[in-house]
Simulated scan of single mutants.
Amino acid sequence: GFELIANASVDVKNPKKNLPRAFYTSVLFVIGLYILISFVTVGNLSVGDIVAAKDYALAQSARPFLGNGGFILIAIAALFSTSSAINATLYGTARVSYIIAKDGELPKILDRKVWNRPIEGLIITMIITLFIANFFDLSSISVMGSAGFLLIFAAVNAANVKLYKETMSRRWISIFGTMACLVAFMVLLWQRSLSHPSNLILLVVMIGFSFIIEIIYKKITGRIIQPIYKIKNPNK
């Protein structure tokens, strides 16, 4: 979820300086934390125990040296962590819909503020999320979420391959990011095709539905997508 940091750029002091710091710090911290958690889990549980407690393996790993109290403590911490992740995601989603609407790529109603906050996109997202959570199984939701993130990250990196001069970034990083996301996406599709083929059908339907909505909205509004940056020809 580190990409959500960018959605808070309007609320950050000196974003040009502080946003890169936030990105690098969060990524490095999470990498270190995940490695430590893996060591603790593997060090306290056998592979069989981890598989048996796959939904609560971290809490189970605290039981050998902290007892039932440790199990409960980690379980409560997991609830707080989940709540924090949901809060950050909803905040970022509200900001994204507001910004996109401001650019004319979503209905104008979403660029209004309620109580001085762009919450209309948040409310719509909440309703859609509740619908999906109640009518689809968790494996389908996780596949859609993971696949969606990978495709979005690949698209963003691919765009930066072209705009690297304007964004003053290293092109090779974006190329590597694009390829890595696409490879991960293909691996995800392959893995789900072996275990849950029905998830692939749902994924294709959702992606197709997204494109259909975009096409219909474009035809209704007559919107023409304009490039954000005009690339200057160095030969002229």
Rank of each mutant, 00 (worst) to 15 (best):
S26P: 08
A53V: 12
N87C: 01
N157Q: 00
N235A: 05
S81D: 04
E120G: 07
P107L: 14
E214S: 10
A147E: 05
L182K: 09
V187P: 12
N157P: 00
I109P: 07
I213F: 05
I225M: 01
F23G: 10
E105Q: 05
F39N: 03
A147S: 15
A133Y: 14
S81C: 14
T125S: 08
V12N: 03
Y91G: 07
A6S: 00
L90H: 14
I119A: 09
I86K: 04
N68F: 15
E105V: 03
I225G: 00
L4P: 01
R223N: 11
S195R: 07
A75P: 13
S61R: 12
Q191R: 04
S9Q: 10
L163W: 03
N7S: 02
I231F: 02
Q226I: 13
N233R: 15
L36A: 12
D55E: 15
Y164A: 06
N157V: 00
D103A: 02
T129N: 00
W115G: 11
N160R: 11
V27W: 06
M144R: 04
R63P: 07
T167H: 07
G222Q: 01
I228D: 07
I127M: 09
H196L: 12
L66C: 04
E120R: 09
W190S: 14
N199E: 15
L36H: 11
I212D: 02
S210Q: 06
F211H: 14
L19T: 14
P227D: 08
L19Y: 14
A22W: 05
V10F: 11
G48M: 01
R95L: 08
D55L: 09
I152G: 06
V143L: 08
A94Q: 13
L200R: 05
E166V: 07
L189Y: 07
L90A: 11
L163R: 02
F39K: 08
I31G: 02
Q191G: 02
Y56M: 12
T41N: 13
I213N: 08
V187N: 15
Y98F: 12
M206W: 02
V47I: 14
F29P: 11
I175G: 12
F2T: 15
A88N: 05
K113G: 02
L106M: 09
L150H: 11
N160G: 01
D49A: 11
I124Y: 06
M144W: 06
A78D: 10
D11H: 05
A53M: 02
Q191Y: 08
P107Y: 06
R223T: 13
G1W: 00
P107I: 12
T221Y: 05
N14K: 14
K54Y: 02
R21T: 04
S38R: 04
G69N: 11
